[in-house]
Design a binder for these strands. Sequence first.
DNA 1: TTGTCCGGTCGATCTCGTCCACTCGTTGAG
DNA 2: CTCAACGAGTGGACGAGATCGACCGGACAA
Lengths: 157, 157
Amino acid sequence: MDEIDRTILNLLRADGRTSYAELARRVGLTAPSVQDRVVKLEKNGVITGYRAVIDPETIGLGITALIGIIPDNSADHNEICERLRAIPQMESCYFLAGVECYQLKVRVPKMGDLERLIHRLGAIPGVAQTRTTITLSTKWEDRPQPVPGEEDPHGVD
Amino acid sequence: MDEIDRTILNLLRADGRTSYAELARRVGLTAPSVQDRVVKLEKNGVITGYRAVIDPETIGLGITALIGIIPDNSADHNEICERLRAIPQMESCYFLAGVECYQLKVRVPKMGDLERLIHRLGAIPGVAQTRTTITLSTKWEDRPQPVPGEEDPHGVD
DNA sequence: TTGTCCGGTCGATCTCGTCCACTCGTTGAG
DNA sequence: CTCAACGAGTGGACGAGATCGACCGGACAA
């Protein structure tokens, strides 16, 4: 993981379809070397995939909401987690330090879908309460911040 | 935006580097036709980009936090927004219906960075209060849900 | 019918991806 | 010091993919 790897990562985060040839030109290597580095980054779990980014509104997912889950004492977190995962509208799920021990980001086409979703969440065993906040607008989302360099010279690796 | 377009979108969301030739095989068209459709989807703002997905921990961004912003009465939202956008660690920013009118997702290498970030947020004019929640773990994130079909036959377009 | 548009196919050409053999420094053991 | 082993990069070759222009056929309206 050197400066060249970080440059490659930044380029691929900005445009995931950049060709190896183009990456090679940018970092001053040849295509096979760059491919070699990219394959290693994938094998090492640094790059976990490539995705097309789609504007949710254009595909009919106009409503985004954030939902906090407050568990009760009997909560089995493995089960809650699996039940949440089984709902395709759950785009993100964070386990938090706090009273609301999960936060979910969901997208649905219509308010009715959101209402059904909230009822479904309430029916999960171990879920005491949910708290839903509608997003009025998404200012930005998943903006890739530059890969930080080795700021700690004491051998963090 | 027909069934073929939706299939292409689903394939590109699962793997953003899928070649046109491969997409063509999957949807039963030729590569030029598929390319034509993809270009149109990009032009129409459906596909807004392509990104490599990177495991934040492997690049030294081990700490993820959610921060709510509570504004005061004098808040100039355009300015707040721009000040927030200028901070590279702010990966997402939602404008919410509620007391906390923004929610931010931030990633930093160390707790000290988070502390500095929170102080910096508190110094933004119009920000009355911040509320930070540390994520203990990310169960999943930005999972692409299937592109919904035309479930409403009354002309939603 | 005829012209036109839209979406798709086909074929040619150029670029890209990928494999392999080779080179060049570096490292560590004898 | 010498030499072998190793990792990283280069260059060439070949097959696959991207891309462009020309052509085809169905839908539609005049």
